[in-house]
Design a protein around this nucleic acid. Structure first.
Lengths: 341, 1311
DNA sequence: GCTCTTACTACTGACAATATCGTTAGTACCCCC
DNA sequence: GGGGGTACTAACGATATAAGTTTTAGTAAGGGC
């Protein structure tokens, strides 16, 4: 017997949406799932486990459950109004409600390691985990930081990503999608898009209508062919649009600390030729890199145009530099001092 | 309980008095009849203390805070900013002799209409420079130039007497015996605007020779026309001339110098030898500062001998005599005792003198000597540093030193040598660009063109200071900034460039001053000693004038630009040897790397430009004594500070300081200037001068103890130990849980934080100790100025009596006074207080000391013994100093005969609350803070703790769990900080944090203790509120007033404020006048930071001359505590002045007053009298009157229900208005109309006035209704209407009936 | 129905700063009438 | 020769950045009396 699904009109009555935005049209959710074809990864969906973070009112959760009947489907939601409606709707149903805060790392360790209420299968970091998937709604702009951290977790293979390369379906604000999907040379190219490039294959699955395509890589709309839904099918309607990303983690380098340092610093001077920009990596870096980089044209490039491959190359050189600075000193300790004068 | 005879009753009894004083009547006699003692005999100021005069000035209609008086040219911000920039550029161009550019800047300045009246000053500056630099070759040429300029180019400008002074000075360069010259001079004098004297008053233009020529040779002026300070010099000059005419001066003759009437015969040969030696040593060690330094040197040399002979004339023991004869009294080579062996302990000598006569002779001689040293000190710092580097470098070279670990100074010298040519080249390029500018630019390469364009900007500034000095300054500044701004091995770029730029500017200023001074007095060379006195006086007149004249500050952008230019050059040349490990071969690798590197760091997603200092250099820096690089403006002074005479004249001799440390608040300066010019704040100056004139010396025995501790490198009391380098925790494995990664980051941040705070306290202690070392045996002073609330602070930041326990322990009064019976008692009380035993009766405290007599002895004799008693004190270093003092006293047969130098403190018990209690008239509160006489001191904190406990017990009885847990845990200590900071407006969260700090000692669980703290804070707050009910009502009232004021609008508001439609920018800051007449302007405005492009990166800085919207939140939060602080500051200054008047040495740390032990009783009487004097007037009521007056006609924005009658009327009026305007009427329009109405109401014309009375505006509608309270609405939706209402402040809360005069006999008020 | 408490969302000055891009305003030059 | 338009540039403003999250007040709603 399928789980009941509440419609837009019912769900939009909820008092607080806590700054998050949800697609609340059952039909469109179905179309998106059609498009996603998660069966390709999860050969036997009935054996899979799904952890649905910041599920909100849980409409999509029920739709997903009804469609795939996964082995276990957990929603983690900490916000009272959502908790309330989830309980009303799904308490006692196959959808398990975890009243924990997805923001807290301990929520996961408690759930998985201590309470063992939701234990995904650990698979080697070789190909996508075919028993475990994460769905999350991070459309609250305040959660952008969390989104980026989750991407870092892919690099670190910790958090939920310790169970292998775990596919994630992430609802994010369009602005975050633009940041993450930016290609080399683009206006919004930044470290987080390099992170995405380095650790994942990410697709744009669906997106609000009325978004300028040119904000994305021009090939992206062709290759991903995202489903475009109407803003009227989302709630709350005010605010920017949202997008659904399909994140597929992949194999990547492991020397992340140096990589992080090099990438971060070079992207500050994104339009300064590499030969000059490298000097900001440390005392005398310009001399070192000019001497080590063999291809003279390479140093004439701009950091914003570099691919992750390029950054890996530079990281490698940096690592071999005898006089490289201490990358762990690269922080500022709180603002103190300054008496009166 | 509070009895409430309401304020109205009280008020009525006060009204007659207030009315009189409001009118400023002379008839009003101070209410001091009650105290017939001397406290209010201070003539003139009397009871009003300055408030009335001052507040009237700053509210008078003619006063505009945004006028140019403070350096802004008009109330239009952009214009004032432009003027400022033009000025500084003009000055720079003139000083760099870019006269063409200067002239075109003058033309731009001329275009600024509002600046026109002051334009002539700028023109004079230009003219003076032309004349001084010989660019005018004849009298006629100058005449022609002037008439050309003023008749054609600057038509609307008239010359003034200063212009004429320049002309006169110029004419006198030619043979003045020629008739033509004389004719010109006559014409100039006839042209005078305000009389000959006015022309002659320009002592900074006319020289002594000029005066001499005019007076003696030409008889054109009489002696009386000549400024007072110049007369004696002139007379002397006349004599000298006569002598010169008669005979060759006899060198030997003049060796007979007399001091204080004692003629000292000296063996001429010996003196000659001295003289030569001295010249020799000067040439060897320190390069002469400038070409005419030779002349000055001769004077100094003579002076030196005088000082020495004066000293040798005193009754001294043989050893002292020997020391004196060996001591080199050359001011230049003996700036300060860097080398202890060479030094002379003046204090020791002074102390050993027995007769008053000897003492005064000694002090006179010392003061003379110190005058020279102070001058040298303020002017020679950079040269001294450079010479040291050079010396070390050459020594190393001589030794053939090639070690990797070069001495720091050797490196610095190398950088300096490498940097210098670059700087010189750049300066050259700049002047080439300017030459090009003169011949109309020609096209060059694009890149170069861009660079040249930039040079046009910074070029003038770069050419002002000698390149050598700029190099030294750059290096020193960067080294000094190491590890500031939270960067582990480096500094913020922004700070670095600004600091360097500022240092260059400072150098320029003092160089300017020195240059013009020696120019002005160059004809007065070899003269006798008496003349020096006059010369000094004349010089100080001259200096004050020069300093005050200077209104120009370089814009931040200019500072940043030259700073960045210099820094990038230094980055380019400075290299250090480095070693590293090859990650592949694991071999050690050696190389060379830039010592400084520019880069960025992220913090919370925002980028921060940093200048990193290479590790290998950082290690070296930690070991060095950096005292050499302390700017002399930051040291105590060897002579009495220049007394405060007006708002920017006082303090150091060659540096300008302002009375108030305003951080970029032109508004504040404007108010200050207005009252200062009207001489309305003399009481403030008096108090401040007393603070500045207290002579100090270093406690040598204590210094020696500290020194030993320091050199051990170990942690001791509050001195952190030496730490090698920062070792961070290695990162966790990649796949560790994110929370582990986070922990790791936090841990490292904490480590770094601890490290750098340790480093900086150790560094700070190092500064303190090094400065103390330099001032061992010296007599010195702390020049003071005020923060914006009027609290006094010493200008010298590192080492002063406001510092920590260590600094305080190191300081002694230079003057000694016999203890006497009371002195001995107070010294003991002082010791007891330092141990924290300060809530007992005085006798008990004396007893405390008596009981520990052995501990005292032991502490004094063997201070570093393990577990010595003094270390257990709350303020150990001061306790040790007091132990030593007591011990020395007790060695005498009669300890009361002991001459004591130890400052004894009297602290207010929670001074803020004392003022609040006096304001609110709370009897309970007043009792608790010792305003009411009592036989033992009351302990507020304990009392509050008690109140809290009883509250908790009540709550616990009702079953409150938290209360049950807490009720036995409350001690005095738990609540102390919160009670104290409550007065200063601590937030709920802040207080919770403070309490948690205490509770976390008791409760393990952090979260739990935080919860408890939160709960407890609530109770503490309400307990304090209950105890100081009146005080809190006042606090609320103050808060409400400031909120309304900072959200009010002036009628002549700038239209730009309404750019956001009906949500205008609020521009009104809270302004009040302290009882002493000091206007206080809360400087909390939005900062308007902008990016400024520099050579290295853009930096983000605010323009100090912008007038930005106020930050209402801060205005509100800041006002109550600031008001109280302004009162305690007033109280302190009054007490200081009073103590000064009675010959007491006085110092203060805000609410802790210091004097000699024997004078404590007197001081206590004075300070209580002054407190009463302050609070006799109902200050709150007066404040409201002042506010009502100052903010009369201001309007505020309110919301009323649309359905109300008023709303309907207003809507109708607005509709009508819109129709008339042909567009939607705005609030700005309404304000404009209201302004018209108010203006017309004040009109002289009866018709206009009558019209105005009939006029209806939206504001007048509200006014007619009176109170909008019944229809006021808090909501902001369609049902409400936004309207303007007149600004109305809330009613003053009722006052309790504590009478402040009771205080008179409360001996524990301060104790 | 009223007041008081709680909780959420709106503040943001500590994005306690900087690189880069886009837009606008201003200026100079050229061409056409 | 003048005026207008165009082209260029300086100047200003806006925006993204990284990635544990952060106070604090004000307002709305809710619950208790």
């Amino acid at each position: 017997m399928p789980l009941p699904i509440r419609n837009y009109a019912q769900l939009s009555k909820i008092k607080h949406f806590y700054g998050s935005k949800f697609l609340l049209n059952e039909k469109i959710h179905d179309k998106i799932l059609d498009k996603l074809k998660i069966e390709k990864t999860f050969k036997n969906p009935k054996e899979m486990k799904v952890l649905d973070l910041y599920s909100g009112p849980g409409q999509h959760s029920a739709i997903f459950y009804n469609r795939y009947k996964p082995n276990q489907y957990g929603v983690m939601e900490s916000r009272p109004d959502f908790q309330k409606i989830l309980k009303e709707q799904y308490e006692g149903s196959p959808i398990q409600i975890f009243a924990k805060d997805p923001y807290e790392w301990t929520s996961y360790t408690d759930l998985i390691d201590s309470e063992k209420r939701f234990v995904p299968e650990k698979q080697p970091h070789e190909s996508l985990n075919d028993k475990f998937m994460v769905i999350a709604n991070l459309t609250n702009s305040a959660h952008e930081g969390l989104l980026m951290q989750w991407f870092n977790c892919i690099g670190n293979t910790n958090w939920l990503q310790r169970f292998g390369y775990v596919k994630m379906l992430l609802w994010v604000p369009v602005s975050s999608a633009i940041k993450l999907l930016a290609a080399p040379g683009m206006h919004m190219r930044s470290k987080c898009s390099v992170v995405r490039e380095a650790f994942t294959d990410t697709n744009l699955v669906a997106i609000s209508n009325g978004i300028e395509k040119k904000l994305f890589d021009k090939n992206l709309f062709e290759s991903n062919d995202p489903f475009i839904f109407q803003n009227e099918d989302t709630y709350p309607q005010r605010g920017d649009g949202i997008a659904l990303l399909e994140v597929n983690p992949k194999k990547h380098i492991t020397d992340l600390d140096n990589w992080d340092y090099v990438t971060k610093h070079l992207l500050i001077l994104r339009k300064t030729r590499l030969k000059d920009a490298v000097e900001s990596l440390g005392h005398g870096a310009k001399d070192y890199f000019s001497q080590k980089v063999e291809d003279p044209t390479f140093l004439n490039k701009y950091p914003v145009d570099l691919t992750n491959e390029d950054f890996n190359y530079l990281t490698n050189l940096f690592n071999l530099w005898p006089f490289k600075p201490d990358i762990y000193m690269d922080f500022i300790d709180i603002y103190q001092e300054e008496g009166m004068m | 309980m509070l009895r409430l005879p309401t304020r109205t009753i009280r008020k009525s009894s006060l009204i007659p008095k207030r009315l009189i004083s409001l009118k400023g009547s002379h008839l009003h006699k101070p209410a001091s009849d009650i105290f017939s003692n001397s406290s209010s005999s201070n003539s003139g100021v009397g009871q009003s203390l300055g408030f009335m005069k001052s507040s009237q000035i700053s509210m008078s209609p003619g006063f505009d805070p945004f006028d140019r008086s403070h350096a802004a040219a008009s109330n239009q911000t952009t214009q004032s900013r432009d003027v400022m920039q033009l000025w500084s550029l003009l000055e720079a161009c003139i000083c760099s002799k870019y006269y063409n550019r200067a002239f075109s800047i003058l033309q731009s300045l001329y275009m600024v209409g509002s600046h026109r009246p002051y334009f002539i000053d700028d023109y004079n500056m230009y003219l003076e420079s032309l004349v001084e630099n010989g660019l005018i070759s004849s009298i006629n040429e100058l005449d022609k130039k002037l008439s050309d300029d003023l008749q054609n180019t600057f038509k609307d400008v008239d010359y003034n007497d200063r212009t004429l002074a320049i002309m006169v000075h110029h004419a006198l360069k030619y043979n003045h015996f020629q008739l033509e010259t004389q004719n010109h001079l006559k014409i100039y004098f006839r042209m005078s605007v305000r009389g000959i004297r006015s022309i002659l008053s320009h002592v900074n233009i006319l020289t002594i020779s000029d005066y001499a020529a005019l007076h003696a040779d030409l008889k054109m002026i009489s002696l009386n026309d000549i400024p007072e300070a110049m007369k004696p010099l002139l007379e002397n000059k006349a004599q000298e001339r006569k002598k010169l005419d008669r005979e060759k001066p006899d060198m030997l003759e003049r060796e007979k110098v007399s001091v204080g009437g004692n003629s000292l015969d000296v063996d001429p040969r010996k003196i000659e030898a001295d003289h030569n030696k001295c010249i020799f040593s000067l040439d060897q060690e320190v390069k002469p500062l400038e070409k005419d330094a030779a002349t000055l040197k001769a004077v100094d040399t003579l002076n030196m001998r005088v000082v020495r002979h004066a000293l040798l004339g005193l009754s001294l023991n043989e050893k002292q005599k020997e020391q004196i004869s060996k001591f080199n009294f050359d001011a230049n080579s003996n700036l300060l005792n860097v080398d202890e062996k060479k030094s002379l302990d003046f204090f020791e000598i002074y102390r050993s003198l027995t007769t008053e006569e000897d003492k005064s002779k000694f002090e006179k001689a010392l003061d003379d000597f110190n005058q020279e040293r102070q001058r040298a000190l303020e002017n020679r710092a950079t040269d001294a540093a450079k010479e040291r580097w050079k010396h070390d470098f050459e020594e190393a070279k001589a030794r053939g030193d090639i070690s990797i670990e070069k001495r720091l100074n050797v490196k610095l010298w190398e950088w300096y040598s490498a940097m210098l040519p670059l700087v010189k080249e750049e300066v050259k390029l700049c002047s080439q660009v300017f030459a090009g500018y003169a011949n109309e630019k020609k096209n060059i390469l694009k890149m170069d063109a861009k660079q040249d364009k930039a040079r046009l900007d910074y070029g003038p500034y770069l050419s002002l200071v000698d390149p050598e000095k700029m190099c030294v300054i750059t290096i020193l500044e960067l080294l000094k900034l190491n590890s500031t701004g939270g960067i582990i091995e480096g500094m913020r770029t922004a700070r670095a460039v600004i600091s360097v730029g500022k240092a260059i500017e400072m150098e320029f200023r003092s160089e300017q001053l020195l240059k013009s001074e020696s120019q002005a007095f160059r004809d007065l060379g070899k003269n006798s000693h008496e003349l020096k006195r006059y010369l000094q006086r004349a010089k100080s007149t001259f200096r004050s004038m020069k300093i005050e004249e200077n209104k120009i500050m370089w814009p931040q952008t200019a500072r940043a630009k030259i700073g960045s230019i210099l820094i990038s050059m230094l980055i380019h040349v400075s290299k250090v040897e480095v070693e590293g490990v090859d990650p592949v071969t694991k071999q050690k690798v050696y190389g060379e790397a830039p010592a400084f590197a520019h880069g960025y760091q992220y913090h919370n997603g925002s980028k921060l430009g940093v200048l990193k200092i290479h590790r290998s250099l950082v290690h070296q820096l930690n070991g060095e004594r950096l005292v050499a690089s302390v700017q002399p403006q930051l040291l105590p002074m060897l002579v009495k500070p220049r007394p405060w005479k007006n708002w920017k004249s006082g303090g150091y001799y060659y540096t300008q300081s302002t009375l108030i440390r305003s951080k970029d608040s032109p508004e504040q300066i404007a108010y200050l200037k207005a009252v200062s010019d009207a001489n309305a704040i003399d009481t403030v100056y008096n108090g401040l001068n007393v603070l500045g004139e207290t002579p100090w010396t270093v406690n040598r025995p204590l210094f020696e103890v500290m020194s030993r501790v320091w050199n051990s490198g170990k942690q001791f009391l509050d001195i952190p130990g030496v730490q090698e380098k920062l070792t961070l925790v290695p990162p966790p494995p990649r796949e560790a849980d994110p929370s582990v990664h986070r922990e790791w980051k936090l841990k490292n941040k904490e480590l770094a934080n601890k490290f750098s705070s340790n480093r900086s306290t150790r560094c700070d202690s190092n500064y303190k100790l090094e400065i103390a070392r330099a001032f061992l045996g010296e007599k010195f002073y702390f020049p003071h100025n005020l923060d914006f609330r009027g609290r006094a602070y010493p200008l010298s930041p590192h080492f002063n009596h406001l510092g920590n326990d260590m600094s305080r322990g190191l300081l002694l009064f230079w003057n000694g006074k016999r203890l006497g019976p009371q002195g001995l008692k107070w010294l003991k009380v002082h010791l007891s207080n330092l141990f924290g035993f300060d809530k007992a009766s005085l006798n008990e405290r004396v007893q405390f000391a008596d009981e520990h007599v052995n501990d005292i002895k032991q502490s004094a004799q063997d201070p570093l013994r393990e577990g010595a008693w003094w270390m257990t004190a709350e303020k150990p270093w001061q306790a040790l100093a007091t132990c030593m003092e007591l011990n020395d006293a007790m060695k005498l047969d009669n300890p009361e005969d002991f001459i004591s130098h130890q400052p004894v403190h009297q602290d207010g018990t929670c001074n803020g609350l004392q003022h609040y209690a006096a304001l609110g008239g709370d009897i309970d509160g007043a009792t608790q803070v010792n305003l009411v006489p009592n036989d033992r001191p009351q302990d507020v904190y304990a009392h509050v703790a008690k109140l809290v406990i009883s509250r908790l017990q009540v709550a616990a009885a009702k079953g409150d769990e938290l209360a049950m847990i807490l009720k036995d845990k409350i001690t005095r200590k738990v609540v102390k900080q919160t009670v104290m900071t409550n007065v200063y407006g601590v937030t709920y969260v802040g207080a919770t944090f403070q309490i948690d700090k205490q509770l976390s000692n008791i409760f393990e669980d952090r979260k739990y203790s935080l919860e408890l703290s939160k709960y407890l804070t609530k109770h503490v707050f309400s307990a304090v509120r209950e105890l100081f009910q009146g005080a809190h009502l006042i606090q609320d009232w103050l808060g409400e007033c400031s909120k309304r004021i900072s959200k009010s609008i002036r009628l002549d508001v700038d239209e730009k404020s309404f750019k956001n439609g009906n949500k205008p920018d609020f521009m009104t800051s809270v302004i009040w006048t302290t009882p002493l007449g000091l206007p206080i302007v809360q400087p909390y405005r939005e900062t308007n930071k902008k990016q400024v492009t520099t050579n290295l990166q853009t930096i983000f800085i605010s323009d100090p001359f912008g007038v930005n919207p106020v930050n209402a939140r801060r205005q509100k939060a800041g006002f109550p505590p600031n008001f109280i602080h302004s009162l305690d500051a007033s109280h302190m200054l009054l007490s200081a002045a009073e103590c000064g008047r009675h010959g007491l040495d006085f110092a203060s740390v805000h609410d802790s007053y210091w004097t000699h032990a024997c004078d404590v009783d007197k001081m206590n009487v004075f300070l209580r009298e002054q407190f009463i004097r302050l609070h006799e007037v109902d200050l709150i009521e007066r404040l409201k009157d002042e506010f009502d007056e100052r903010y009369r006609n201001y309007v505020q924005i309110a919301r009323v229900e649309r359905t109300s009658e008023l709303a309907k009327q207003i809507i109708a009026l607005r509709t009508q208005l819109s129709k008339e305007l042909g567009r939607q009427a705005t609030l700005a329009d309404e304000i404009y109309l209201e302004k018209r109405r108010v203006q017309m109401l004040q009109s002289e014309d009866p018709q206009e006035k009558a019209d105005a009375e009939k006029m209806v505006t939206t504001v007048s509608l509200v006014e007619a209704i009176g109170s909008i309270e019944p229809i006021e609405s808090k909501k902001s939706d369609a049902s409400t209407l936004v309207i303007l209402t007149p600004l109305r402040l809330p009613q003053i809360p009722p006052k309790g009936n504590f009478d402040v005069r009771e205080l008179k006999n409360s001996k524990y008020f301060f104790s």
